[in-house]
Computed example of a mutant assay.
Amino acid sequence: MNKVSKREAIVGCILGTAVGDALGLPYEGVSSQRAPKLLGPPDRYRFLFGRGMISDDTEHTCMVAQSLIEANGDVDIFTKRFASRLRWWILAFPAGVGKATARSGIKLWLGAKPQNAGVFSAGNGPAMRAAVFGAAIDDCTLLLHMVRASSRLTHSDPKAEYGAIAVALAAKHSRDNETADANLWLEQVAEAVGNEGVELTDLLRKADQSIRTGESTPDFAQGLGLGKGVTGYTYHTVPVAIHAWLAHPKDFRQAVATIIRCGGDADTTAAIVGGIVGAGVGREGGEGNIPEEWIDGLCEWPRSVTWMRSLGESLAASIDANPTTGTKPPSINPLGVLLRNLLFLLVVLFHGFRRLAPPY
């Protein structure tokens, strides 16, 4: 498989995040033992009459992309624009929003500055929206500044930041290399997170060693004590997601299905893996790429597949454009978002009640 262009990587990352998110969503919170009996294999959408819908993982990725377009490489502008979008996003009643993100959104409405809005949490919120940084940004120094700004807006625990850095660098590595070099990527992560992130780098090395022995991603998760499912703790989420990526670096279908089979926070883990692998394989249409039927099966508005493609194209164009001219991100209908979220909430409630019934 040939190296993809930056434009293809960005669009592939956004669509890959959306597809992984939508495929994993029905499995969220279900154990790896019960999921096959309750839902069947993760080979098609099982959320809304055979169609898929996205959750906060993709929505945050889109908000990051929009804010990157407006920032033109300025970290302060990015932070302000992303903070503004987060404030309004909270008002649209998003279902399943993480506690730390919700609290930071409330703090922003109460007047907190973006630099002080984060709460002390090592959740996987920053990691779920980090892949697009790696797909879009060449300069590693700028990439790290952007990821840190995004992370600290909602999560002040450095662990959340380190997990997001690992994901962003994985997406960049996936985009820049025809084959994955785990050692090279690990060196970059270790340098970026320093001694404070040694716990994470040790876990990532364990993931690499596990793959070299031929261990499957679900077995690796089991070895970390995550047999019932991957939790939202970033030092659980990120190593297992990285394992799935390194095990299937250019095979989107296998990578995403493998991480979903691990259970737990399946929409977020699959969104992360989908974003990383999507950045490496690009758009749909080829062997190992994002399956066309999965993209066509997304049932979304106003953040439709067409809108997400346009967003990716605009982000790529903004990077190539003259900074003085600027590029505007595609807009979104706020009333449409609210109506869509009400439908989404009803479907989520249906799935919640369905889980009360057998099979167990």
Rank of each mutant, 00 (worst) to 15 (best):
R309P: 08
R309T: 13
R309G: 05
R309A: 06
R309E: 09
S310V: 00
G312L: 00
G312I: 00
G312R: 03
G312E: 02
G312F: 00
E313F: 02
E313A: 02
S314H: 12
S314D: 12
S314N: 10
A316P: 15
A316T: 14
A316E: 10
A317C: 09
A317Q: 15
S318H: 10
S318N: 11
S318D: 10
I319T: 11
I319Y: 14
I319P: 04
D320T: 15
A321C: 11
N322C: 10
P323D: 13
P323Y: 09
P323S: 14
P323M: 11
T324S: 07
T324L: 07
T324G: 09
T325L: 09
T325H: 03
G326I: 07
T327R: 07
T327K: 10
K328M: 12
P329N: 14
P329Q: 13
P330W: 02
P330S: 05
P330N: 05
I332Q: 01
I332Y: 00
N333D: 14
N333P: 05
N333K: 02
L335P: 01
L335E: 01
L335K: 00
G336V: 05
G336N: 04
G336M: 02
G336S: 08
V337H: 01
V337N: 01
L338I: 10
L339I: 14
R340D: 13
N341M: 02
N341K: 07
N341Q: 13
L343S: 08
L345H: 07
L346V: 15
V348M: 14
V348C: 15
L349Y: 06
L349M: 13
F350A: 14
F350R: 15
F350M: 12
F350D: 11
F350I: 15
H351T: 07
